[in-house]
Amino acid sequence: MNIFRLAGDMTHLFSVLVLLLKIHTIKSCAGISLKTQELYAIVFTTRYLDLFTTYISLYNTIMKLIFLGSSISIVWYMRHHKVVRRSYDKDQDTFRHYLLMLPCLLLALLINEKFTFLEVMWAFSLYLEAVAILPQLVLLQRTRNIDNLTGQYVLLLGAYRALYVLNWIYRYFTEENYVHWITWVSGIVQTLLYADFFYYYFQSWKNNVKLQLPA
């Protein structure tokens, strides 16, 4: 495992921790899109079906279980916890996320590495992950005040994606037969979706003003 991959996994882990911190200690999910969180829960459930079929490493298994468990518990908290759910911006979080799932499924049926159930689900999870952040970005744009933890959460997620792109470049040049078009294209699309947010985040950081996205 190279440094970019490890750093990518760690920023992903931190992003989840930041979100759990917000939910557990502040008992708030204000500014967090339940739609995006539901999509992530589906992404990890469909991608990590290979937990039952393939053993890669202890690290791999533990990380998969963490991402599965945390994404499902975040959805549970936002929907059912009696305090946390009251802070959910339901009226602002109106992105029709289920409409993203059908095109991703069709694409996965058409473009996959092998036409088997696990491979189609794996491709589906990659396509869906690429667009899963959209409801969150729309919600950020609508929310007047973006609090620090929410901003950091999205920043860490974006950093995780960018580091994965560096990891692929590194692996391409150092490993033989390392070519994965499906992962790369959907991963690059996903990273580009963060570009706009990055721009405004660093502007606000540089000028030392509160993060606000233009309407």
């Binding site: 290979d50 890669i56 490493s57 992962t183």
Partner: peptide, 10 residues
């Protein structure tokens, strides 16, 4: 094997 390589990522 080729199939395995992508699956070692999260």
């Amino acid at each position: 094997p080729k199939d395995q390589a992508a699956k070692d990522e999260l």
